[in-house]
């Protein structure tokens, strides 16, 4: 995924400043400096004195544009990073080794943070090793059980990423337990509404289809067996899941059993934020920084 992104989407313009907060975990620090080595960005590190000294010793000689900002605590580090981004002194925020609640509650705060109200969602991005095709699954982190309005935002955010990745006329499957609209099952009704909005071109060129159960979404033949006539089944770019439980399991099944390289993108912030989600490989974490530069 990393090499593909680098070759397909070379950096344009000035190298952005990426601020890591708080810098504690060596793996995330190494990821950032790998991105620096690949000429993707300039590093800004916040953390305590001891750690900054270690970073300076290890990377200082080779990295001329290294900026080190001392902050004793995690919360102070994140706060400083957010304020720097808001003041345009840095461009991209990367989460270091800190709890998601601490980090995201501050980052997603509509007043103090980097997000507008209800604007964010998380997209798992998987790549087929066979043909390098991207598949997105969303929302796999932020919304536990999104309502229709939130699903609308989730679709819009995914479509923005699809456009960045130059996916032409993206096909979106809105998943539900069954492929028929059942007024008692909210996910089927939400999916039908989104599908109708798509029919009226409210999502531009994208084709949003739903409700689709997973077998209909993933196979045109299976959909045909259920008498479903649509161009989306078997050719999906974006899966919108009904809840985080299913999104979590779905993306991990594809990543770990399907062995598809995978990364994640937090979408909808005013400036890019890279969330430190576990189980993402080293190269894919570097790829996440490239993806974040594309969001600028």
């Amino acid at each position: 995924m990393l090499n593909y992104l680098r070759s397909k989407f070379p950096r344009r313009g000035e190298k952005p400043k990426v601020i890591l907060a708080p810098a504690k975990d060596q793996n995330v620090i190494d990821v950032l400096f790998k991105a620096v080595e690949l000429d993707i960005c300039r590093p800004v590190i916040t953390g305590n004195r001891e750690l900054l000294a270690e970073v300076a010793q290890k990377y200082g000689p080779a990295v001329s544009e290294l900026e080190l900002l001392e902050q004793p605590g995690d919360f102070e580090s994140i706060k400083l990073a957010v304020s720097m981004i808001k003041d345009n002194r840095a461009d991209i925020l990367v989460q270091g080794d800190t709890g998601h609640n601490d980090f995201l509650n501050l980052v997603l705060d509509p007043e103090k943070g980097l997000a507008r109200k209800n604007s964010c969602s998380y997209i798992s991005l998987l790549m087929s090793p066979k043909d390098n095709r991207f598949t997105m699954i969303t929302d796999t982190f932020i919304h536990t059980l999104p309502n229709l309005q939130e699903k609308y935002v989730i679709v819009e955010n995914a479509l923005r990423l699809a456009s960045m990745l130059k996916i032409d006329k993206p096909k979106v499957a809105v998943l539900a337990a069954i492929e028929k609209v059942n007024p008692r099952i909210v996910s089927t009704v939400d999916a039908a509404v989104l599908s109708k909005m798509s029919e009226r071109k409210q999502f531009g060129d994208a084709i949003v289809e739903g409700p689709l159960d997973i077998d209909c979404a993933t196979s045109r033949e299976a959909a045909a067996r259920k008498k479903l006539d649509s161009v989306v089944p078997g050719d999906v770019d974006i899966y919108v899941v009904p809840n985080v439980e299913s999104g979590y399991a779905f993306s991990q099944m594809l990543a770990f059993i399907g062995k598809m390289p995978h990364a994640g993108v937090l979408a909808g912030t005013v400036k890019p934020v890279v969330v430190n989600v576990p189980f993402i490989g080293f190269e894919e974490k570097v790829a996440e920084i490239i993806l974040s530069t594309m969001l600028l």
């Binding site: 998943l175 539900a176 337990a177 996910s187 159960d213 997973i214 077998d215 993933t218 196979s219 299976a222 078997g234 899941v241 009904p242 809840n243 439980e245 299913s246 979590y248 399991a249 779905f250 099944m253 594809l254 059993i257 399907g258």
Partner: peptide, 12 residues
């Protein structure tokens, strides 16, 4: 939903 998705990924 999770069970259903996990069980029927044989097409992908």
């Amino acid at each position: 939903d999770t069970g259903n998705i996990m069980a029927k990924l044989n097409y992908v």
